[in-house]
Design a protein around this nucleic acid. Structure first.
Lengths: 204, 204, 204, 204
DNA sequence: CTCTAATCGAGACGGTACGTCGCGTCTTACG
DNA sequence: CGTAAGACGCGACGTACCGTCTCGATTAGAG
């Protein structure tokens, strides 16, 4: 929970066996996360599921969190690149919609990360990375501390997306993407950027 | 993380020794939470800090989470009673301000719960209790599923209060309470209830 | 096992309640010894069986062994008074028979002590007391150290009696007493005192 | 006390580490048995003496008794192979002498087993194994139940050997071996097999 | 026949050993 | 001769029982 992911991408291995081992491990982690909480997962359990030797795990990752990082960190970064900019645009609905589309396109992975047992730790990492990104581009605001804006915006976005993915399978349903984007924009983005609610075409 | 607090208040013991032991344990938990994450706390550590026998812990609580529950559960309920109603009033700023004042008045306890190592688990419990409460009084909404509204409203409120408490000591500073209430109302409450932003007198 | 019984008879209590408590405890011990080993008996178990408070046990006996002592110590002394002299008589069959009769007459108690879970510890005490008794009246013997004679004689007698009591209920069967006395005399007493085997009328 | 050793020899491990661990554990047990009773020995104490991790104990033995078994069981079997046959020979003194010589040759080990804190439990195992062996070759006897004969013979032999080993160091003293064999034969073997006492040349 | 003090039951307490489990390291034996 | 399998030291877990202790609530026996 308190442990934060490193955010450092692990050097890509060249050896074919290493590739196979890592893929097996990440796959096993994602598979197991559908059933149990991340921190009640056992390394032995992961390696057993991956059909891999126990010690092999440590040849690739120092801790369980490092494996999760290897799975999640890059994806978090990619998603963040699509989240942060939204806050800076006045006309932001389109960007919000794009964000939701992206998540829907990678529903399987993001379901595991946002609704699986690792949700809390991924959320922490999500916000942590966002704060680091935001430190650079301070946009002073009279009534809202910048840091709080980032925390609230990122966290809420995370929560709404997680809630969305927790309902069955949203991918493919074009309608649903628009709806969730509207909600997200209405509840989070618009209040932050001070944009008009009318900016969202789908406001019922 | 996945473990949720029971929400059931433990029966108050009559024996003076039991009262003393429980007080020592809860006190030790709160004290330790200021330094470390809840789940990297050890029961042995708690009992050592409480100057209590290790086995005595289990005479009172079956798990570490049960102790946290005993500390937090009632407080969460009290706070929720002040959070949920806000969403139902059109003129809600005053209620928001009252909520913030309440938190400021119990800053020590809520700092431990919201910003300490137990934050994630307390947050889960917070939302869980809110969802249960909200199930009763379904207020259908065309564009926003009721459940999502609760999750977003509760979670965001939690986050903003946590951010607030994480900055030094907010108690006593009358100004600060008003500011955070304004922000909370602006970012979370107003978008949910559809109230006008002008409802908040302090909007700068 | 290594713990030896004190051999000190506890002062008899006058208070009726104390009498009742001790009787309940000794009775419970004997009852439980029929099922389980002495040292896998729990003080809590004994007090529960005795329908007695847990702390009450310690008001009467400092340890589990003290309770066993209270039950067994005097009986062991009495039996020893009938065992030791046998070794000193040339015509000893009658004494052996008397010993067996005495045991048969108190079969219930001796079954518990010799064949129950406390057998090993009672045996140790048996031999220990015998050695102490024998130290006084040294009867030098050229080929057999006196101490070894006592150890062997007492231990073997104990074993044979225990074997005997372990077969159903020997009391009432007059025949059986004679047979076991013959065996005991033949196997143990006669070789020790150098008496003739013919001394035993029942030698087949 | 009531717990009996399994009598099953543990499969010999091939891994050098396992060999080392087991040797350390058995060695520690024998060393500690010189000082304290077996059942007031702590597994933690054994592992500490063996310079071994606590959990490692359980990777090799399920209980303390299993460790004792690993130390004693085979030795008991070997000794029994030399004890039982004696009862079947008419001219048995030589066999008795051979038995005593064997014990004297392994005095260190047998001192630990017979006179150490595990004596009672080893004795039980001794007799138990003997009874199992004797069940096969029933040699009916008019005045002596076969089972009692075995119990008495084995138990007495155990006691006399234990008494012998408890006096200092008997190995090397040729005289002593003959003397104890004579006593053993006189007190136990001869009465059982009905042999004449004159069969023993050393009878003084 | 009362009153007072001893004895009772109940059970919480600080300890300590238990046996289990998972960790991360490090050795071994096999392919 | 490198890698999987897995044994190892470590330490927290939750359980059980120890012997001590405080509580009222009986209840015996002395006055």
């Amino acid at each position: 929970m308190e442990t934060s992911l490193t955010g450092l991408k692990r050097a890509a291995p060249t050896d074919a066996r290493q590739v196979r081992s890592r893929k097996a491990l990440t796959g096993a982690l994602l598979a197991l996360l559908k059933d149990k909480s991340f921190d009640q997962l056992t390394i032995r359990e992961i390696t057993a599921r991956a059909r891999t030797g126990y010690a092999t795990f440590f040849r690739h990752y120092p801790t369980k969190e490092a494996l999760l990082s290897d799975v999640a960190s890059e994806e978090i970064g990619t998603l963040l690149d699509r989240t942060i900019p939204i806050l800076h645009e006045t006309s932001s609905y389109e960007s919000t919609l794009a964000l939701c589309r992206y998540v829907a396109d990678h529903a399987a992975l993001w379901s595991a990360l946002l609704t699986g047992g690792a949700a809390a730790i991924v959320r922490e990492e999500f916000i942590l990375q966002a704060r680091h990104l935001a430190q650079v581009e301070q946009r002073p605001n009279a009534w809202l501390p910048a840091d709080l804006g980032v925390v609230h915006g990122t966290g809420s976005t995370f929560d709404i997306l997680a809630w969305w993915l927790a309902r069955g399978n949203p991918s493919g349903e074009h309608e649903s993407v628009g709806q969730i984007a509207t909600i997200l924009h209405h509840l989070v983005i618009a209040p932050l950027v001070g944009g008009r609610l009318e900016a969202s075409p789908a406001t019922v």
